[in-house]
Write a protein that binds this DNA or RNA. Structure first.
Lengths: 334, 334
DNA sequence: GTGAAAGCGCTAACAG
DNA sequence: CTGTTAGCGCTTTCAC
């Protein structure tokens, strides 16, 4: 059997209240007994029961991160950022990949019973649920989205701005006129915002949009590959392709190369995310950095602050994006 | 305030015991009252307190996955496999990236107090700790390693066999004589086993080993890039390079291409892991598939079985690897 | 400074 | 079939 505070109390010849005080740096306890108790506790290898503590304190010291799917470099970065901050503050991190399309998955409703706060990075979670959490004033932060009419803690990348800059770069520096945009999944907010930035840049220069939509698409390499193959059948070839994510850009590069064409000579390619391998692709990928790891860390910090200070004003941060110019757009080696 | 079984009992005009029975499909309860109670529970949006349940049942319904670091495609696959199985069986998954070199990190000792079982995929965790868990017969499964003298639940890839096959392929099909091996971190077991397979294949053909070690290396793209650059300064160039991981192979490819050489014409390159993007690299990467996702899922299944049947005989599974021949070794398109 | 006791929400005998 | 009651391990008043 695991030792409990009773075990310790017995060995120390004190009451469990005193043990509790010693363990929690409570006030009104002599240094001598505190030291004695602490020693016994470590000797016994005592570990407090999370359940009992949670029950008494109404706290779980646990956070949950909910996202669409783990595969791919995006979410591993996100988890990494969140986990680091959580642990540093003695919190634990539960992860859930929720691929459901049910906007109000019953599963979601059991989370508040196990956690002190949520990081929601899933776009298909219904607003109904968000409102529900908000009304209960259960701590959470939203990633990559906002909810109309609600002042919430959110963290999201400047998708529109990043896509705008990148598209302008293609137009102004490289003189591209025909730029194709390869969607991730079409109902994805990130895709839509990036598409909006792309459109704004084109309109500013009076150029037409060329969008390859994705009916049941995703952000994978395979998705990028398949869509680029379709683009290659177009009557008029684009001079540049803007993939909605780096992961898709990897597939786009593969399709172009396999068709016997060269990047960037025949077609320029750019992506979005700046995943770790982007710099090492052939050619190195021009993209937009959005510091996913840092966003995950920041979201977690804000969540922890929300938990500790429930009345703090909500903060909505738009993480600035940064153009990363490499070779795939046609620029020389930076 | 959240509703509890007391709230429900009051509204239903029954005792909390009856409510508990209704909620847990307990025996000896009339269908009528069960239905009535269930209805009230859902109307109230009742969710059982995980802490209270855990305290009474001595169970957490939570698993933990401990690994070295999240970054990179390897661990996101692993998490994905584990999370899926866990959730399907109503378990929750905590993740921890433990980069410590302290083989007996104090942090590890608090895990049994919060979880019902552990998946340890971290090679730097001391055997002392493993023995400790084993003696307490706390459920856990080891990934990628064994402990001498202990019969444990383990899941690991056939690193040696996969590396052997891949090296033989290079020698026999492509006639390579000078094959360089690029280590991940040198004290990593996966690296060592892959290196062993590489060595065995070379010895079988009477060829010399060419190993580029890594003093403080890792499995990253940057690591592969830096080491390949060093290899390119060697007096005699290798005909093929075997990178200890696909992620490193990405860096290796970049270094070779940047030096103005071509893969596979000038130097063949092969990796290990078969990460999702391997098929889309330029050229497509010949590698060894080890089904990381599936290994994560299997480890979780075995852990759950160990939790449910503590006396089951431990299972040590070596996951078979599969040669994935693509273009980077010199083979035509498969 | 220390102890007694109540209570956190739920389960599981044991009675009825 | 249903209710009473005693914990599970810990924190926290409130006395002393």
């Amino acid at each position: 059997m695991q030792p409990t505070i009773y075990t310790i109390a017995e060995q120390a010849g004190v009451s469990i209240a005193t043990v509790s005080r010693a363990l929690n740096n409570g006030p009104r306890i002599s240094e001598a007994t505190r030291a004695r108790i602490l020693k016994i506790a470590t000797d016994l290898g005592y570990q407090p029961s999370a359940a009992a503590r949670g029950l008494a304190l109404k706290t779980t010291e646990t956070l949950a991160l909910i996202f669409p799917q783990v595969s791919g470099p995006y979410f591993s970065e996100l988890i990494g950022g969140a986990e680091g901050v959580a642990r540093q503050q003695n919190y634990h991190l539960l992860v859930y990949s929720l691929q459901t399309n049910k906007p109000n998955d019953p599963f979601l409703h059991l989370l508040p019973a196990r956690t002190d706060g949520l990081i929601l990075s899933n776009q298909h979670i219904g607003e109904e649920y968000i409102h529900h959490l908000h009304q209960r004033s259960f701590p959470f932060v939203l990633m990559g989205r906002e909810v109309a009419g609600l002042k919430l803690d959110t963290v999201r990348p400047d998708n529109e701005g990043g896509a705008y800059q990148l598209t302008r770069h293609l137009i102004e520096v490289h003189g591209c006129q025909r730029i194709a945009f390869v969607c991730g999944s079409e109902d994805n907010l990130h895709t839509q915002e990036r598409l909006a930035g792309y459109n704004r840049a084109l309109q500013a220069s009076g150029l037409p949009a060329w969008v390859e939509p994705s009916i049941r698409g995703d952000f994978s390499e395979a998705g990028g590959y398949a869509r680029m193959q379709r683009i290659l059948t177009w009557a008029e070839q684009p001079q540049a392709v803007f993939a909605a994510s780096d992961q898709m850009a990897v597939g786009v590069l593969a399709a172009i190369t396999q068709a016997g064409l060269h990047v960037p000579e025949d077609i320029a390619v750019v992506g979005f995310d700046d995943i770790p391998s982007a710099a090492y692709l052939q050619p190195a990928l021009t993209t937009v950095n959005q510091a996913i790891f840092e966003q995950g860390a920041l979201a977690t910090e804000h969540l922890l602050q929300r938990i500790n200070w429930p009345d703090m004003a909500p903060r909505s941060v738009v993480w600035p994006t940064r153009l990363i110019i490499r070779r795939s757009c046609g620029c020389g080696n930076p």
